[in-house]
Computed example of a mutant assay.
Amino acid sequence: MRNRGFEVINSYKDKNISLPERKTSKSAGYDIEAAADAILKPGKVTIIPTGLKAYMNDDEYLGLHMRSGMSVKNALSFINSQGIIDADYYNNSDNEGHIMLGIINHGQEDFIIKKGTRVAQGIFYKYLMIDGDNNNKGQIRQGGIGSTGV
């Protein structure tokens, strides 16, 4: 039985995408690489593809965090501080669950990210629900970033 992990999405199968891994035995995060080269313009948000999707148990989510060295040394951050990938994002009908990273460049010069650069780290978390939560609303996720509406 599979509990949690990463897979390469179909459209990136032939693009030599590395599955995330922890770099030390005590690391909490799985390092996630950029799946393509990108130029981050000053003051702008750039969406970086990872070529990955993540599967997990229904009461879990994948938290995406900017790698601290990448952030501090280069004045970069995720536009939403932390990305949250819900369990039902995996293999949804509109985008297969492709994990994308929205990065803002706070610097004054272009910053180049090369394919294979470890940009983020993913940590799997358990979450709790409040009493009386109706978690069986019957809605099925469709789509990518912002797919649950405003």
Rank of each mutant, 00 (worst) to 15 (best):
K115G: 11
Y55I: 08
S11L: 10
D88R: 04
M70E: 09
M100L: 15
S147V: 01
D133L: 09
P20Y: 04
K26R: 08
S71G: 15
Y12E: 13
D58F: 05
N16P: 11
E60W: 00
Y127V: 00
M1L: 14
K73S: 13
V72H: 14
G29D: 03
N105G: 07
G116T: 05
K23E: 07
G143W: 01
R2W: 08
E60V: 01
N91V: 00
A87W: 10
S11H: 14
I104K: 09
F111G: 03
L64M: 13
I17T: 10
I39N: 09
I99C: 12
G132K: 13
N10L: 06
A36T: 07
I48D: 11
T24E: 03
R4A: 15
G144K: 02
V150M: 11
K13N: 08
M1R: 12
N16F: 08
K126Q: 13
G69S: 15
I104P: 09
I79D: 09
I123Q: 01
N105T: 07
A87K: 06
M56F: 14
N74M: 04
M100A: 15
V119R: 00
K115C: 13
I112S: 14
G144E: 05
R67K: 15
A28E: 00
P49E: 04
I9Y: 07
D131G: 05
N3V: 10
I79V: 14
T50E: 00
A35F: 05
L64I: 15
P20V: 02
G97R: 08
S25V: 12
K15A: 01
S93D: 14
D58Y: 06
N91W: 03
T148F: 05
L76R: 05
G132Y: 11
R141K: 09
S11D: 15
